[in-house]
Amino acid sequence: MTELYKLPVFGIVITLIAFFSARTLRTKIKFVLFNPVLVAIALIILFLVVMDISFDDYNKGGKVLSFFLGPSIVALGVLFFEKYQLIKHNIYPFLLAVCCGGIISIFSVSLITVVMNAPDVIIKSIVPLSVTTPIAIEITKITQGIPSITAGVVIAVGIFGNAFGPGFLKLVGIKSETAMGTALGTAAHGIGTARALEVGHLSGAYSGLAMCVNGILTTLIAPYVVIWILG
């Protein structure tokens, strides 16, 4: 009985409870910091720290859940196919915008971390910060960074983009809703896409597609940029 928390089912159950409570909270209060992922993670960490349970014990169940990231990434391909019809006529400007944005993201984050004299492991962990979390984690495994740091920073970037993205873009003179969607999906992945969907249906489609394209692009480029910068 005392060893109950060492079973995989423990991690699964508390994650599900935290996730669904956080989701319910979000439907009640539409405040950006009440992002379901953020709240769920905070709740679980708090619980584990208070109960003095190690992350490794929790992660026995956690691993079962993160296993589904693999098929979820494949599901993104299906999403891409569905939305692709909507933007066919603008595919070249769209691809150019996402590719430039994705490359700028990789280089700007690497340059800033190098200029600020950060240790190598930070660069290795946060280079894919603008792509969707499951893909970012895969990239970090290739660059040998720390997946948890990646997940934390990527989620933070998503929330930042979700909260301030549209306001910032209006401020710098972006009027097109579809451009806003593309930018949100490229820079702030799924959490940004959630905001783009609030701007408009078409904006959401552009954002979802941008997220997929930037995911592939960053996978192809980021590992080489890391090797190139760190020598």
Binding site: G11, T15, L16, A18, F19, P36, V37, A40, I41, I44, I45, L48, V49, F55, Y58, N59, G62, K63, L65, S66, F67, F68, L69, P71, S72, A75, L76, L79, T133, P134, I137, I146, P147, S148, I149, T150, A151, G152, I155, G190
Partner: peptide
């Protein structure tokens, strides 16, 4: 179904932050 629960699946990585 998977995309609806996508965020659930990466919560464990976020919880991993507690080790850092």
């Amino acid at each position: 179904t998977l995309l609806n629960y996508l965020v659930l699946f990466f919560i464990p990585f976020g919880v991993g932050l507690m080790s850092y």
